[in-house]
Design a protein around this nucleic acid. Structure first.
Lengths: 324, 324
DNA sequence: ATGAAAGCGCTAACAG
DNA sequence: CTGTTAGCGCTTTCAT
């Protein structure tokens, strides 16, 4: 597929390639006549500049890599929507990478992005020890996970979110509150949700979900909870999908929500509020997280960073509905 | 950020750039000694090949553009997950574009993708008349929408899906079934869901949702339905999010589902089955759609297309739960 | 106001 | 088995 190139436009317009480049980039002086000729030629040939060639010269691709566990999750898909939208305002194109939480996959995505000369990356990693992130020359921001001391992390106020959730359960009368969270060994700020829980209840019991993205495993763990602690009357789930599974299991076991059991989730995405409007949850400021991440990343790329804060914490909000 | 390049590796290893290129690409004969020297130099310098330069030469970027209305929707996010996954097996990188259903946005994304020399595009368009798609040299496949006579479309059996949904409502005793669908004027195979509905019921009444991605507008339309036709005892919604809103409005109006009203949705994503497990719906074969689309696109790109079918229709399935 | 020439980092003839 | 050379499509000094 013989692409039409700048040179073809130049020939047709009877000018030099330099001139065509100038009108394309609006640089330097060009007579109106010449500009017109060039523009006509562009139109006639239906010419599109080759951004790959441009990138090679400029050493700037305007590509941003977005690494997350899976886009098929209401939190990440809402986050990704906002990120992509804001990026497009900055002229950035987003390369989507689903690591599926697998170290090897994430590693190879990170390397691929580097080879493709991305200007920067936004990473929501569930893995540790990826060498590629260590390069201090590579602009990266992390969402809700500590990657390295040099990588800023954007997230919401996880401690406060945990506190709001648990305090609410206490306020509505729960005596035996259980917490369900992801793997402990990940050094993520989301562990602060758990810390808040442990600070607030007398005898904290946290169940760990090692396979966050497998609903059946989650359901099994929850059945186990009701088996181990039949007195449970409150659950603080570290995300809304887990909370939904709690509701499902409760129904299956004929436990009435909210009468016998109260449930608070976490994230508060639009998707969940459409599909499960009764869920009481903690709403993260997803759009703000996205905006902050892109702005921060852009500052690092442009080297215009004034604020060197390494952790940005955004406020959360309790959304009361009918499950607690 | 002075990138290390192939030439630096060559110098350190004491060989020519060609030789380095050869070991990188495993092309031609290289002595073990030389290969070793080069590999050591690569490691020492922590060298990553520049894929932009490579792409410029090869006229092949391995980029695929993915245009959809919004990734923040269970159907599209599940589709995107599978597409990205399969693409990554083919060595394709996915550029994510959310058109938000806006013509101008979609147009500028399409042009951006062309300038970036994508090898192909997968498009789920909600717009008509985008010039960029007309270029017969550009490999494109469409999902569930007719873009042009030369662009193959992948989708599921929308007529059969509609038939299954409506027949089920009839089978469980509904007498006054209403259908809710997206804008009529889009020439999409999904209009076949409506056709099936109209073929099956005596006095078809279809409500049109012009703003598919605005839940409040959807709710208003549904309230209108119960106002206009209080006898309604069955709703076939053209997607699960609409069905969820029906459930919400029914609850608000104290209409008991499934006793007084039965609802069937459409899509059957994992997200919906986690968050709204009670919903009866038509399950689309999302993974198959993704796989078929990527395979077809790859065939067009590689020019190895044997099967020139312009429309591929995959089977759907009724998933009976508690709303109908 | 416009053009000629060099070069971004890589690969592929073609020699040797 | 390895190196020399040219060129992918574009932009930018530096002339004129």
């Amino acid at each position: 597929m013989m692409q039409v190139k700048l040179e073809d436009v130049a020939k047709l317009a009877g000018v030099s390639p330099t001139t065509v480049s100038r009108v394309l980039n609006n640089r330097g002086y060009i007579s109106e006549k010449t500009r017109k000729k060039v523009e006509d030629a562009i139109k006639e040939l239906n010419y599109y500049p080759n951004d790959i060639a441009r990138s090679l010269f400029k050493k700037r691709t305007n590509f941003i890599g977005l690494i997350l566990p899976t886009i098929n999750n209401p939190f990440f898909s809402e986050l990704a929507l906002y990120i992509e939208n804001i990026c497009s305002n900055y002229g950035f194109k987003v390369i989507l990478c689903n690591s599926l939480g697998q170290l090897e996959k994430e590693k190879s995505y990170a390397e691929m992005l580097i080879r493709h000369q991305v200007d920067g990356m936004i990473v929501c990693s569930y893995n540790r020890g990826i060498e590629a992130y260590k390069n201090p020359k590579l602009p990266i921001v992390a969402i809700d996970h500590y990657l390295s001391p040099t990588i800023p992390v954007i997230g919401s106020d996880n401690y406060e979110g945990g506190r709001l959730a648990v305090q609410h359960l206490i306020d509505v009368g729960c005596k035996s509150i259980i917490h369900i969270n992801g793997p402990f060994d990940l050094e993520t700020p989301t562990q602060n949700r758990r810390k808040a829980y442990e600070d607030l209840v007398e005898k904290p019991i946290t169940y760990e979900l090692n396979n966050l993205f497998n609903e059946e495993a989650t359901a099994a763990t929850i059945r186990q909870i009701f088996n181990d602690y039949p007195e449970t009357d409150g659950i603080f789930a570290s995300d809304d999908l887990i909370a939904a599974t709690c509701l499902k299991v409760a129904q299956e076991l004929h436990i009435d929500v909210p009468k016998q059991l109260k449930v608070v989730g976490y994230d508060g995405t639009q998707t969940v509020s459409s599909l499960l409007p009764q869920l009481t949850t903690i709403r993260q400021p997803i759009e703000d997280i996205a905006k902050t991440a892109v702005i921060k990343l852009n500052e690092i790329i442009e080297e215009t960073q004034n604020d060197k804060t390494m952790e940005i914490i955004l406020p959360v909000q309790l959304v009361k509905n009918r499950t607690a």
